[in-house]
């Protein structure tokens, strides 16, 4: 049976992708951020997961407002990246895993979640920056990826409790897939940031660290906040914690927090990175 070997939270800020393109990882501005990634890459190299289930939000590359899914699952053999309009360099296609994608879709619908099913989508920096960070120099080609997107742009967005439950259902689906595969989960985005409006630039290190603690020990505690309360606490894009909740929901029971890094700000955003290992 398939096994979830761990979950990783990471930012997907475009500036990080640009910094990697330009080889700026050791510059003072970025050094403390990038310090966490080599140990995580070592862990990945030792554990050798076959599949990455990647929670991200599309920022208007594929999913415009004309047809905007609340939850969407990629079911394609390959996912292309493309020009997003402001200068991040597109990367070569990401390999999919259609069998597990369809298994997840079937399991979800059987268990009362009804996502949009996507056989042809482009993935944006929300997916490509984390893949590039974790498998640099295009080595992400060696892992199969299932991109799962959550609407974080236009209200109404799924309630935090719903994103957690969505993750739980996906975790159940992975655990009952009858192939001996190792699966790593990626919860991308967050933490506090607000890109828009006169309130742009707000950060909240205290709340971010509370969320990182709770992602480990008690993710339900984060669900006491509505999306608008998350906006109030951590800025308009704090709602991206939805992807962290979905990732954490996939893991049953307790987790060990193997690694953590918190660096703020990078670009306009607080960056939290964690490696979580299921205890059982």
């Amino acid at each position: 049976m398939a096994k979830i070997i761990g979950g990783i939270t990471t930012a997907h800020i475009p500036a990080i992708g640009v910094a990697m393109d330009k080889g700026l990882e050791n510059e003072p501005y970025y050094r403390d951020l990038f310090a966490i990634y080599p140990p995580i890459r070592e862990w990945l190299a030792e554990e050798k997961p076959d599949i990455a289930v990647l929670f991200y939000n599309d920022h208007g590359l594929e999913m415009f407002l004309d047809k905007k899914p609340t939850f969407a699952i990629g079911c394609a053999p390959e996912y292309e990246n493309a020009d997003e309009g402001w200068g991040i360099k597109p990367i070569p296609p990401v390999t999919g895993e259609t069998d597990l994608s369809w298994h997840i879709v079937n399991h979800l619908i059987e268990n009362d979640f009804d996502p949009t099913v996507c056989q042809d989508i482009k993935v944006d920096h929300g997916a490509t920056v984390p893949l590039t960070l974790l498998w640099p120099n295009f080595t992400y080609k060696g892992i199969k990826v299932i991109p799962i997107s959550i609407n974080c742009e236009r209200h109404p967005m799924p309630k935090p409790s719903r994103s957690l439950a969505f993750g739980k259902a996906i975790g159940d689906a992975i655990r009952c897939w009858d192939k001996d595969s190792k699966v790593v989960l990626l919860g991308t985005g967050g933490l506090s940031h607000q890109l828009d409006g006169p309130r742009a630039g707000i950060l909240n290190a205290e709340f971010d660290n509370w969320c990182m603690d709770k992602i480990v020990s008690d993710p339900e505690a984060i669900c006491q906040y509505s999306n608008v309360e998350l906006v109030e606490k951590g800025g308009a894009q704090m709602v991206e914690i939805a992807m962290w909740l979905a990732m954490r929901g996939c893991i049953e029971g307790e987790v060990e927090e193997r690694m953590r890094n918190y660096v703020s700000p990078i670009s306009n955003t607080a960056v939290g990175v964690q490696l979580l290992i299921p205890k059982d």
């Binding site: 003072p28 050094r31 951020l33 630039g201 950060l203 290190a205 660096v263 703020s264 700000p265 990078i266």
Partner: peptide, 11 residues
Amino acid sequence: LDSQGRGKNNG
């Protein structure tokens, strides 16, 4: 932004 920052030494 920097005034609210944490965990970055900027060098």
